[in-house]
């Protein structure tokens, strides 16, 4: 991260640049609107929400066609902004982030799952004596969540784009199974992200409000970093950034 250009704030560590913060909140707003509109699109026995919600939303926006097109265009904007961000910030932000957050080997997944279970148990006063390896920038649960969200988001963008293309263009020779399975995958991955978001929002609001604060100004309290991310703190110390 670009610590050199950030203004120094005594007792705080500059943890993320403004563009990452803006991207995070853009993502959050898009997710909220896309979820609300998406839940209004799915009709029939496959729906997730009461019929009344879909009817109200469709009437509000002037019909199902408008709702589908609006949802899809916002989805494309969301995916497009992320694609551009990745393209223009690959070496400075994206790749360093991915190196820290991705958990893809079976061993790392198992280790992170173990850490996640212990962390959740500790919320209830259980497994207090279990010692975990000092976490770096991200702990096991955060790595799993991050990996799941990155993978799911790519699947959501891909299946959403595919369904929009099939919806707009006459399906013609494309087998109906392509749309059917895209819809299944789209719904599955969106649900999966929401299951993870419960934990993400809980920790941000209740357990670690300091991290929420850093998602507004980019700074984390030095004491918080020392307590919650000791390995990262040591790393920063070695680099002379604290």
């Amino acid at each position: 991260m670009n610590t050199e250009t950030a203004p120094v704030k005594p007792g705080f560590i500059y943890s993320r640049p403004k563009k990452v913060i803006r991207l995070h909140w853009f993502n959050a707003i898009c997710w909220l609107v896309l979820t609300l509109s998406g839940l209004g699109i799915i009709r029939g026995s496959l729906r997730f929400m009461p019929v009344g919600y879909a009817e109200w939303l469709q009437n509000t926006v002037g019909g199902q066609f408008n709702l589908i097109v609006g949802h899809s265009l916002l989805g494309l904007l969301w995916a497009g902004v992320f694609a551009l961000f990745v393209l223009f910030n690959w070496t400075s932000v994206v790749w360093p982030f991915l190196k820290k957050v991705l958990s893809i080997t079976p061993m790392s997944v198992l280790r992170d799952m173990y850490e996640m279970v212990v962390d959740i148990a500790k919320l209830f006063g259980l497994l207090k004596s279990v010692k975990l390896a000092p976490p770096g920038r991200y702990n096991g649960a955060q790595r799993l969540l991050g990996t799941m969200i990155i993978g799911s988001s790519m699947a959501i963008a891909l299946t959403g784009t595919l369904m929009f293309v099939l919806f707009l263009l006459t399906p013609m020779t494309v087998d109906g199974a392509v749309f059917r399975w895209s819809l299944v995958a789209h719904a599955f991955f969106v649900g999966l992200v929401y299951i993870g978001l419960v934990a993400h929002i809980y920790y941000a609001l209740i357990e670690e409000p300091e991290s929420l604060q850093s998602m507004t100004d980019g700074y984390l309290e030095e004491g918080y970093v020392k307590r919650h991310c000791p390995a990262w703190y040591d790393e920063l110390k070695k680099e002379g950034r604290v």
Binding site: L46, V184, G191, L192
Partner: peptide
């Protein structure tokens, strides 16, 4: 696909409810 969605739909609701 419809059978899968019929499992995915309640499965996600249970998962989300469990997390909440």
């Amino acid at each position: 696909a419809a059978q899968t969605l019929a499992v995915v739909n309640p499965g996600l609701k249970i998962g989300l409810g469990g997390m909440l």
